Structures are given as C-alpha cells and as structure tokens.
Amino acid sequence: MNAAVTDYDVLRVFCAANGGYGNELGVVRDGSVLPDPDGRQAFAAKLGFGGTVFVDDPERGVIDICTPTLRLPFAGIPCVGTAWLLDVPELVTPAGVVGARQDGEFTWIEARAQWSRPHTLRRYGSPAEVDDLPVPPKGERVYAWAWEDEAAGRVRARGFPGRDDGIDEDEATGAAALLLTDRLGRALNITQGAGSQLLTAPQPRGWVELGGRVLLER
C-alpha cells in the first residue's frame, strides 16, 4: 500500500436533524494517488469505515467504492456522501450512472434498487419489536422494519449486515432503504439505528431516490 496516501475526508451520512448519528464514510478525492485495486482495498481496510470512496474523475463524478473486504459496484452511503462532497449532477459507478441533486439540507441520489446488495427485508408488527431484536446469526443480511406511521410513510428500521466486515449492526443502510422503497412502491421516512434518518421516493421506470443529511467530520 502507498503509505503516502493520507489526504482523505471523513463524512457522516444520513445524520439526524440535530447532526448526530449517521454512518462514517472515507473519501479520497484524488484517486490517482492510489490507482492499484489491491492498494485501495488495503487502504479501505486500514481506515475501517463501512465504505471508502476513491474519486477517479471529480468533474465527471467517476468513483470506486470499497469496503474493508471488497469492492462494490454501488452503495447508498458512498454515493450520497460523495455527491454532497463533490456537488456534481451525477456519479459514474460500475453499476451505472447515479443522478445527484442538492435540496436544502438534504442530498439526493437516484439509483436502481437492483444495484443494491441483497437483504432479507423482514417486517415486524411494531417499532418496539424492532428495537428489541437481537443480532441475527452470522451470514444473514437482515433489514428489520416496522411502520411507525403507515399513513405518513414513517418507518422504524435496523440493519444487520450478518457481521460482514465485523459489524453486528449498521447505523444506516442506504441500499436496504432502496430495496424497501422499491418493494412498497411509496416514499418513506426511515429512522434507523440509534437515530439516523433516510428519505426515499420511488421514481418512474424503476428508479428510486434516496436522500439524507451529510456532515464533514474532518
């Protein structure tokens, strides 16, 4: 790994209204300093965030997404966070072109649910049931959810990545939010984890918008 790579931003994506919660994301704005895929993977593992983005063309929004253990063609948090940081109208990912826009305090992307990693979407009868859930067995990627207010589209959710990358529970899961929105066919206001907020809205021809607040940590 290139030890000289130290210039990266740390964002928190899908924050609550008070600026708390959300998931950390690393972004290397100049991906050319570490062009080798194995080196990028090692650097992402060293940082230890759920996602690290390498920007290969900041003007066109070309990005490469890595977790500590693998490269992803698409992921919600990396795309929302990088769209906010670069302020570009689109991102180019291996999965396809992701639309992006800013709307007040929220950054939105537009993607296809099938680009997301598979999750078991498991509905429960009440938010309290979701809150009381234990961590599922290793290997099962579960997005547990319940209606807080069905008429208003308010959802309580928790994300369990099956201990992937050593994580028992995910504070915010953009990919699963896309999948749930695609299944329900309606806009959602999701509170996940300890207090992260994710907004979604289905769009024509199989697209889904995903929005949230982003803060720069350093």
Rank of each mutant, 00 (worst) to 15 (best):
Asp87Met: 09
Phe74Asp: 02
Gly139Phe: 11
Cys79Trp: 00
Val5Pro: 04
Leu188Asp: 01
Pro118Tyr: 05
Leu25Gly: 02
Ala44Leu: 10
Thr69Phe: 11
Asn2Trp: 14
Asp64Tyr: 12
Val33Asn: 04
Tyr124Glu: 11
Ala194Arg: 11
Glu110His: 09
Val55Met: 00
Asp165Thr: 10
Leu72Gly: 02
Trp115Tyr: 09
Arg71Asn: 04
Glu59Gly: 04
Leu34Thr: 00
Phe43Met: 01
Val88Pro: 00
Gly26Asp: 02
Arg218Trp: 09
Leu121Glu: 03
Asn18Ile: 15
Leu180Met: 07
Pro202Lys: 00
Ser196Glu: 06
Ala83Tyr: 04
Ser32Leu: 12
Cys79Lys: 00
Trp147Glu: 10
Ala45Val: 08
Trp115Asp: 02
Glu59Cys: 08
Phe14Gln: 05
Trp108Lys: 08
Ser126His: 06
Ala17Ser: 15
Gly166Phe: 14
Arg117Lys: 12
Thr67His: 10
Arg156His: 09
Arg101Glu: 15
Thr120Leu: 11
Arg186Ile: 13
Gly195Cys: 00
Asn189Cys: 11
Glu171Gly: 08
Val208Met: 05
Leu34Trp: 03
Asp30Phe: 14
Arg154Thr: 15
His119Cys: 01
Ala100Thr: 02
Thr191His: 06
Ala17Val: 11
Gln197Thr: 05
Glu90Asp: 10
Ala176Met: 07
Ala128Ile: 15
Gly195Tyr: 06
Glu90Ala: 14
Thr69Ala: 12
Asp131Leu: 13
Ala177Tyr: 03
Gly174Thr: 00
Gly211Glu: 06
Phe43His: 04
Thr200Ile: 04
Val13Leu: 14
Ser116His: 01
Pro161His: 05
Glu150Gln: 15
Ala95Lys: 06
Gly139His: 13
Cys66Phe: 13
Arg183Asp: 02
Tyr143Ile: 01
Val214His: 02
Gln114Arg: 14
Arg186Val: 12
